[in-house]
C-alpha cells in the first residue's frame, strides 16, 4: 500500500516527466485539483451527516432531559423514553451474534479447510449471493416462515424478539463467513504443516493451531457482524412486533432503535420528529463505538 504512494508522490515530484510543456503541466494541475475535490466529497458528506443528524437531534435531547430521554421507559407521541429501544437493540444484537457467529465461523472453517475444491466453486458464489440478497427479501422470508413457526410452537403473535434474532443471525452469516474465511486462509500454511509434523491429526491441527492463529481476523468479522445487526432496519421491522415496551421475553414483541425511526417517521412532526432523529443520534453513537473498535482491531492486525 505504502510503496505506490511514496514512489508516485515522492519520486515523480522530484523527477518531472521528460517532455515538459506548459500545456500538459496545466492539465496535470487541474486534474490534481479535480481528484482532490472528489476525494474531499467523503469528508464533506460525513461532516454534513454529523451536522444534520446532531443539530436536529441533540437540542431535543437536552430540552427533554438527557436522562429522561435515555433512561425513560415510556414511549408514546408525547413521552419519549428510549430505554426500551436501546435494550431491544442490544438484546436482539447479542442474540443474533451469539447464534450467528458460531455458525458463521464454523462455516468459514468448512470453506477454508474441509470443503472439496469442486464444491467450493459453488459455495463461494453462494456466500456472495447470500450477501447480495436484499434485506427486504430476508425479512419477507422470515415473516412467512419463521414467524408462523414461532406462533405455532410458542403461541402468541409470532412477531417477536426471537423472530428478529433468528432473522439477524441468518443475515450476518455472509459477513462473518467471508471475513473469517479470509482470516483463516491468511494463516501461514507452515503452522498447519508444523502441527501435522508434530503428530497432531488433521482436525486437531485446524482447531488448535490454525483457527486460534486467525482469531484477530475472526474477531473483526464479529465486530462487523454486530454493526450489521444493530443497523439493520427493514427486515427487522417486518418480524419484531415493534411494541415500544421494555423487552418482556423471547416470544414477545420488541422494538429496536432502527425500527423506532421507521415506524413513526412517516407521520411524525415537531418534537416527536426530533425525538426520532435523536434516536438516530443514539444509534449513530453506538455505530461509532463499534466502528472504532473495528478500525483499532484492523490496525493492530496490520502491525
Amino acid at each position: 500500500m505504502e510503496h505506490i504512494n511514496e514512489g508516485a508522490a515522492g519520486k515523480t515530484k522530484r523527477r518531472p516527466p521528460v517532455r515538459k510543456t506548459a500545456k500538459t503541466d496545466w492539465k496535470e494541475k487541474i486534474m490534481h485539483g479535480v481528484f482532490f475535490m472528489a476525494a474531499f466529497t467523503s469528508i464533506l458528506s460525513l461532516v454534513l451527516i454529523v451536522i444534520f443528524i446532531f443539530t436536529n437531534g441533540l437540542p431535543m435531547m437536552f430540552e427533554y432531559g438527557l436522562t429522561d430521554f435515555i433512561f425513560g421507559t415510556t414511549w408514546n407521541r408525547t413521552t419519549f423514553g428510549l430505554l426500551p429501544m436501546i435494550t431491544g437493540s442490544i438484546l436482539v444484537t447479542l442474540g443474533a451474534v451469539g447464534l450467528g457467529v458460531p455458525i458463521g465461523v464454523m462455516t468459514a472453517v468448512f470453506m477454508a479447510e474441509f470443503c472439496p475444491k469442486r464444491l467450493y466453486a459453488f459455495l463461494k458464489p453462494a456466500v456472495n449471493l447470500m450477501a447480495g440478497i436484499p434485506s427486504i427479501v430476508y425479512g419477507f422470508f422470515a415473516l412467512r416462515i419463521i414467524v408462523p413457526q414461532i406462533r405455532g410452537i410458542f403461541g402468541g403473535p409470532g412477531n417477536s424478539m426471537l423472530a428478529a434474532i433468528l432473522l439477524l443471525a441468518i443475515m450476518i452469516l455472509p459477513t462473518v463467513i467471508s471475513l473469517s474465511e479470509a482470516a483463516i486462509r491468511s494463516v501461514p500454511r507452515s503452522y498447519f504443516s508444523g502441527s501435522m509434523a508434530l503428530g497432531a491429526s488433521h482436525e486437531r491441527s485446524i482447531f488448535s493451531v490454525v483457527v486460534p492463529a486467525a482469531k484477530s481476523g475472526i474477531f473483526s468479522s464479529i465486530v462487523l457482524g454486530v454493526g450489521r445487526a444493530i443497523g439493520e432496519t427493514m427486515a427487522v421491522v417486518m418480524v419484531a412486533g415493534n411494541q415500544p415496551l421494555m423487552p418482556r421475553g423471547l416470544t414477545e414483541g420488541v422494538r429496536t432503535l432502527t425500527t423506532n425511526i421507521v415506524m413513526e417517521m412517516a407521520y411524525a412532526s415537531g418534537q416527536h420528529r426530533d425525538a426520532l432523529v435523536a434516536t438516530g443520534v443514539v444509534l449513530f453513537v453506538f455505530i461509532m463505538i463499534i466502528n472504532t473498535t473495528f478500525l483499532i482491531m484492523k490496525t493492530k492486525e496490520a502491525k
Binding site: L46, I53, E232, M288
Partner: peptide, 21 residues
C-alpha cells in the same frame, strides 16, 4: 477515515440525513 466511517453507517441513518438535508 471518513471513507471507512461512511462504509459503516447503517442505511437508516443515511435515510434520516437524506430527509433532513
Amino acid at each position: 477515515m471518513a471513507t471507512d466511517t461512511l462504509a459503516g453507517i447503517p442505511s437508516i441513518i443515511y435515510g434520516l440525513f437524506g430527509m433532513l438535508f
